[in-house]
Nucleic acid binder design. Sequence first.
DNA 1: ATATTTTTGTACTTATTGGTACAAAAATAA
DNA 2: TTATTTTTGTACCAATAAGTACAAAAATAT
Lengths: 199, 199
Amino acid sequence: MTNKIQTRGRPKAFDETEALTAAMHYFWEHGYDNTSLDNLLVAMGIKKSSFYATFKSKAEVFSRCLALYRDETYRQLKALKEQIGPKATMMQLTEMTIKELEESGNVKGCLLINSGKECYNRYSDLSHQIKIEFNFVQDLFVSFIKEAQELGEIISTKDAHVISGRYMNTLNGLVVTIQAGASQELIDDLVESLKEILE
Amino acid sequence: MTNKIQTRGRPKAFDETEALTAAMHYFWEHGYDNTSLDNLLVAMGIKKSSFYATFKSKAEVFSRCLALYRDETYRQLKALKEQIGPKATMMQLTEMTIKELEESGNVKGCLLINSGKECYNRYSDLSHQIKIEFNFVQDLFVSFIKEAQELGEIISTKDAHVISGRYMNTLNGLVVTIQAGASQELIDDLVESLKEILE
DNA sequence: ATATTTTTGTACTTATTGGTACAAAAATAA
DNA sequence: TTATTTTTGTACCAATAAGTACAAAAATAT
């Protein structure tokens, strides 16, 4: 991947993918606008000169982070599915959100959803990319539901697109509902409703 | 409300509530951070000197806009409920979102949800207020469901809190799902799921 | 007429933003 | 050794941010 044959001159002291991963996590936690270039440089562990010698702008780095997020999400979810099966993998998404809330007192949500809201009607190039990444991940979820139906983990009378769409919508809704200040009872029932969707 | 007995001196040339209403709509469309003071002054139709002679800061104005939004929402929904009944009023919320999408090509969503996300883990005072306003409006929805159940518009076997919570969560989820770039089929099914929740 | 208060307008401050310029040091291949 | 390239560091730039200061004009109650 990043196997560039060593050319003459001082080699890059940082790994591009590692730096992008660090940037992705910072963006994920703070959002695009609320991440200043200085914040980003500290998170990535490189200096401004190195940054602009490698990337063309903050926006380009963000774009690459979105792609990286989609890649990582895809990779990790597929790996998890091989271990615990498709239905358990879907439920795990909910459990991770609740666990994060209980352990740290807050939730980050999905980077694509967060960025979709932030970029909507403001950064059309990023919005366009987010749409593509979002539907890419959405398709993965549909394939999980289909596989779960074949395995008999989920009843086959409902359309996989419908189940997947409603599950993810409810989960993404749960995050914004928590962020708006929902009561524990409301959160608990929404988690219950997520279980029901996968029945 | 704003009946202040005329004191000596040049009277205020603008109505505070009108200015706040204009500010509220600007914040609703653009968010808090993405609304500069200059944007706000143009939207409110007043000059910087008048602004700071009346309000103490941008944050205070935003806070008052949140309260105004809750007030207006409460007032308008109750009025609508008197006209078309509680269940139709709830469905109207979905219809408004879809109508807005079809007519203008985009959705604004709920100011409290949008602000909840934007302020979460960043502006604790505002976050705290949003939580209060959000639950205030949420309680109104619960009362609508209860009334709809009494009227026989919605079956009474399910808890009103559950119905209200799931409906609003799905609707708020729908907005962020649209903003992330959902397909028309997904949007259509989520609207269908909103109908089912109120059955 | 006068005191009072809000108006508008202009100028300013301090901080931060994303991004550029450039020199000197360091690390490596040839 | 030399050519090449990346490193760090410092100094910039123009734009924008929220907010302050203050004078002069305008509108009103008394």
